[in-house]
């Protein structure tokens, strides 16, 4: 199982400014779990209602897939440098 990312590191640097922060993403894990529990019956009901339109399946599956995407963000790294500018983003 892949765990959701625990931290998001954002680093920004140019000639005059330098900024670096570690955002503790693990803080939002309980809220995500709570939201999933609360929204699950609502999404299920909506999926049943809208099944005939073709949107029921996406409604039902999009929640778990978005959660999988969130979990899969762990390890994503983007690093861009140009002259004195530097932007770094990484999920740990």
């Amino acid at each position: 199982m892949i765990w959701p990312p625990s931290f998001l590191r954002v680093k920004f640097e140019n000639e005059s400014h330098k900024f670096s922060i570690w955002l503790p993403l693990f803080v939002i894990w309980p809220f995500l779990l709570l939201a999933a529990v609360v929204l699950a019956p609502v999404v299920l009901a909506l999926a049943i209602v809208f099944w005939w339109t073709g949107w029921g399946r996406p409604m039902l599956y999009s929640g778990p897939i978005f959660f999988a995407i969130f979990c899969a963000l762990r390890g994503l790294e983007i690093d861009v440098r140009k002259r004195d500018q530097h932007v770094h983003l990484s999920f740990r």
Binding site: I69, G75, L76
Partner: peptide, 24 residues
């Protein structure tokens, strides 16, 4: 003189493909 370094987890690509499969 730009330097770009992007590292995308394969799990993210897999999850993205799964998302594409539920498009109505």
């Amino acid at each position: 003189a730009e330097r770009v370094n992007i590292r995308v987890p394969m799990a993210l690509i897999r999850a993205g493909v799964k998302l594409a499969t539920v498009i109505p």
